[in-house]
Simulated scan of single mutants.
Amino acid sequence: MEQHPYLEQVSLANNHIVRMNGISVVKKLNVLNLANNSIVNIEGLEELVYLTWLDLSGNSIKIISHLQHNTQLRHLDLSDNNIEVITDLSPLICLQTLLLHGNILNSLKPVPACLPASLAVLSLESNEIHDLTEISYLSCLENLEQLSIARNPCESFDLTYITLFDYRAYIINWCFRLKILDGYGISQKEKLLAEWLYSQGEGRHYRVGEHYQLLQYLSTVCPLSEELRTEEDAKLSRILNKQRYHHDQLLRQNEPIKAHILNRSHSHTGN
C-alpha cells in the first residue's frame, strides 16, 4: 500500500485479513472493499477523509466504531457481522445507504440519536428485533425510501391466538416516504391503509413493549384471510375511488379559471 499512496479504489475482499490499520497510508481512497475477511475491529480509517463507499460485510465485527471522521461516507455495508447495538453514526451526514442485515441487533431504540437523517436505504433484515412497535424509532428518518425488516422475530407470532396479518401498512404508517419495503414496491392501497391507520385508526397508539397488543389489533384491520382481505380491499377501493372523484372534480372546477387566465394572456399579447 505504501508504494501506491494515490489509489482511489481498493478491493481486498475474500481474503484472511484480520487487521485493517495498514490501509491508512492510502489517503486519497474513496472506495474500500474488505468484505468476507476475518476483521474484528474497525480501525485505521481516521485519515481517509475522502472515503465515500465502505464494504465490511461478512466479517466478525461486534462494535461499530472509529468512523466519526469519515464524514463523506455515502454507502456503508456492515451486513453479516456480529453487531448487537447500533452505535453513533450521526456525524456521517452524507450517509445514504446503511446495510445491517444478518447481524444480532435486538433493538432500534438507538436510531434517533445514532443514525443521520440523510439515510435513504436501511437494511435490518435477519436480526433479533422482537418488538414490532420499535418501528416507531424509525420515524425520525425522514428521507427513508427503502427498508428491509423481514426475518426478524417481530414478524412471527402464534397463529393459535392471532389471525395472519400484513404488517406493511403499519410500518408505512411510521415511514411515509417509503417506496420499497422488504424488496417490494409499496402500492397505492398500502399507502391508503397506512394513512387510515395514522389518522383514523390506532397505527401510532401502541407504545414500545405492547407488541402483542399491536399484533392483535393488526390482525383485525390488516388481515391476510382471503375473505376478510377481499372485504378490506373493497372498502379501500371505494375510498380510493372517492379520492379520485374529488380530485377530478377539483381539476374540472379549475379548468375555467385556467382558460380565463390563458385568454387574458393571449389578449395582452395581441395588444
Score class of each variant (00 low, 15 high):
Pro256Phe: 08
Gly185Cys: 07
Tyr206Cys: 09
Asp248Ser: 11
Leu144Cys: 01
Leu76Thr: 14
Ile162Glu: 04
Cys222Asn: 09
Val26Lys: 00
Ser65Phe: 07
Lys242Asn: 13
Ile180Cys: 07
Tyr50Ile: 09
Arg252Cys: 13
Thr220Gln: 14
His260Ile: 14
Gln243Tyr: 11
Val10Ser: 00
His101Val: 01
Phe176Thr: 15
Thr230Glu: 12
Asp80Gly: 06
Tyr212Ala: 04
Ser199Gln: 15
Ser225Asp: 15
Glu142Phe: 04
Leu181Thr: 03
Leu147Arg: 00
Gly44Glu: 10
Leu108Ser: 03
Glu145Lys: 08
Cys140Asp: 00
Lys62Gln: 08
Ala113Leu: 13
Val25Pro: 01
Asp248Arg: 08
Ile186Arg: 04
Ala259Leu: 12
Leu141Ala: 00
Ile261Gly: 02
Ser267Phe: 07
Ile39Gln: 04
Leu218Glu: 08
Met20Asp: 01
His130Asn: 02
Ala120Tyr: 02
Leu99Asp: 03
Leu48Gln: 03
Leu105Val: 03
Ser57Pro: 02
Lys258Pro: 01
Leu193Pro: 05
Val26Ala: 07
Leu48Pro: 03
Lys28Val: 05
Ile39Pro: 09
Tyr167His: 09
Tyr161Ser: 12
Leu224Asn: 11
Leu192Glu: 13
His101Phe: 09
Glu8Cys: 07
Ile149Cys: 08
Leu193Trp: 10
Leu193Ser: 10
Leu32Ala: 05
Tyr217Asp: 12
Leu181His: 00
Ala120Met: 11
Leu115Cys: 10
Ser139Ala: 05
Leu197Gly: 10
Leu122Cys: 01
Asn30Gly: 09
Lys28Gln: 15
Glu202Asn: 13
Arg207Glu: 13
Ile63Trp: 12
Ser57Trp: 05
Leu115Ser: 02
Leu193Glu: 12
Leu122His: 02
Leu192Pro: 07
Met1Lys: 00
Tyr245Trp: 11
Asn33Arg: 09
Ala117Gly: 01
Leu99Glu: 08
Cys94Asn: 08
Leu95Trp: 06
Lys235Gly: 09
Thr163Asp: 12
Glu231Met: 13
Glu125Phe: 03
Leu89Trp: 07
Asp182Val: 10
Leu7Phe: 06
Leu29Val: 12
Leu147Cys: 04
Leu119Asp: 00
Leu164Gln: 04
Leu99Tyr: 11
Leu12Tyr: 03
Arg168Thr: 05
Ile171Thr: 03
Ile39His: 10
Asn21His: 12
Gln243Glu: 14
Ile257Gly: 02
Ile149Trp: 06
His101Trp: 05
Tyr161Met: 13
His101Ala: 06
Asn143Met: 06
Arg244Pro: 01
Leu262Lys: 13
Val208Trp: 04
Glu43Trp: 08
Ile42Met: 08
Leu141Glu: 00
Ser139Lys: 08
Gln243Met: 15
Tyr6Thr: 04
Ala120Ser: 12
His247Glu: 15
Leu132Glu: 03
Arg229Phe: 10
Gly203Ser: 06
Ile162Lys: 00
Ile83Glu: 06
Ser267Leu: 09
Asn37Arg: 01
Ala120Pro: 03
Val111Tyr: 02
Leu124Trp: 04
Glu84Gly: 13
Phe165His: 01
Ser11Val: 07
Pro91Gly: 14
Arg204Glu: 09
Glu195Lys: 15
Arg177Asn: 14
Phe176Arg: 10
Ser225His: 10
Leu89Asp: 07
Ala35Ser: 15
